[in-house]
């Protein structure tokens, strides 16, 4: 009995507030937009019995998904989200790897402090960390002032409200997610392997490519997925740092819902986004599983 309650309480909570909402999204994505409250059709009318049920299901169709393929805003937004997520993941890896590497090579008594310094920004509000860049990247911002003072440029660069600002924002906010898994992979590495490689005639650099990088492979993969997956649906960064030319699907969904009030299309956008995410999520789970088995 006790066991039953222990299982049932969190189970039912998740079914009611996680699973059922999804079924509703799926259902509304198959409905039509209507000028009513709530603004979609059909409504399920259980009091009409079997007839109500059949007429409800016969009114559902894939029209919204068809609409998404005809208006090129949507597929452009999906593609550009994927492209932005991919580019910024690579950039985060390039920035994060050296930091993780240096942390793993630092003296052991320093490592907990360095680790805390990486984690600390993660506890600070995401919104504030994105906001911090608005003052730096704007036309009169500190970066432009600094570059003008150095004499590198003659007139301010437009960075804020472009995709470059979005990349900077993503790299900055997701950097800890990249550093931590790579660090934990590198920290476990046995240094004698590197010595062996060098004894056997490897140069420092080729020892790094042939020994260190393959041994940190799982950390790299985990870090990349931890950056890539949440970036695709990102809303805050493109809407604060990006401009009108920045197309990202999270922003499109938000606007479809709040500005256009087209709930069925917003739901259809969400369903497709989820389908796109399923592949990287499964790959990520596999990688985690493999790692656990390798350790276990």
């Amino acid at each position: 009995m006790r066991r039953f309650i222990l299982i049932a309480v969190p189970y039912l909570w998740l079914v009611a507030l996680f699973l059922i909402p999804f079924v509703i999204v799926l259902k509304i994505s198959l409905s039509d937009v209507a000028l009513a409250r709530p603004p979609y059709f059909p409504q399920l009318d259980l009091s009409a019995g079997w007839e109500g049920l059949t007429s409800f299901f016969s009114a559902l169709d894939f029209e919204n998904f068809w609409f998404l393929t005809t208006d090129d805003l949507y597929w452009k937004a999906y593609l550009s989200s994927l492209q932005i997520a991919l580019t910024s993941t690579v950039m985060t890896l390039l920035v994060g790897y050296p930091i993780a590497y240096a942390m793993a090579r630092a003296a052991p008594e320093w490592r907990p402090t360095l680790l805390m310094l990486v984690i600390l920004p993660f506890w600070t509000s995401f919104l504030i960390r994105v906001y911090a860049w608005m003052g730096i990247l704007s036309n009169e911002g500190l970066l432009n002032q600094f570059l003008l003072w150095l004499g590198v440029i003659n007139e301010p660069l437009t960075i804020l409200n472009t995709n470059i600002a979005v990349y900077i924002g993503i790299v900055y906010t997701y950097l800890p997610f990249m550093i931590l898994p790579i660090y934990s992979a590198l920290e476990r590495m046995d240094d004698s392997l590197l010595e062996a490689a060098e004894d056997l005639g490897c140069s420092r650099l080729s020892a790094f490519w042939l020994v260190t990088v393959p041994l940190s492979k799982n950390g790299i993969i985990a870090g990349c997925f931890l950056v890539f997956i949440p970036t695709i649906g990102e809303f805050v960064i493109p809407s604060l740092l990006g401009g009108s030319g920045t197309l990202m699907i999270g922003k499109v969904l938000w606007e479809e819902f709040f500005s256009n009030r087209d709930w069925p299309v917003a739901s259809a956008v969400a369903v497709i986004l989820l389908l796109i995410l399923v592949i990287p999520i499964i790959l990520f789970q596999r990688n985690e599983q493999k790692q656990r088995e390798a350790e276990g």
């Binding site: 999804f22 509703i24 999204v25 997956i229 695709i232 649906g233 999270g250 938000w254 709930w263 990520f284």
Partner: peptide, 14 residues
């Protein structure tokens, strides 16, 4: 791993 926009949208519809 769920994008926040989807979690938010689905809960609102519920």
């Amino acid at each position: 791993v769920m994008p926040e926009v989807i979690t938010g949208l689905s809960l609102l519809l519920l």
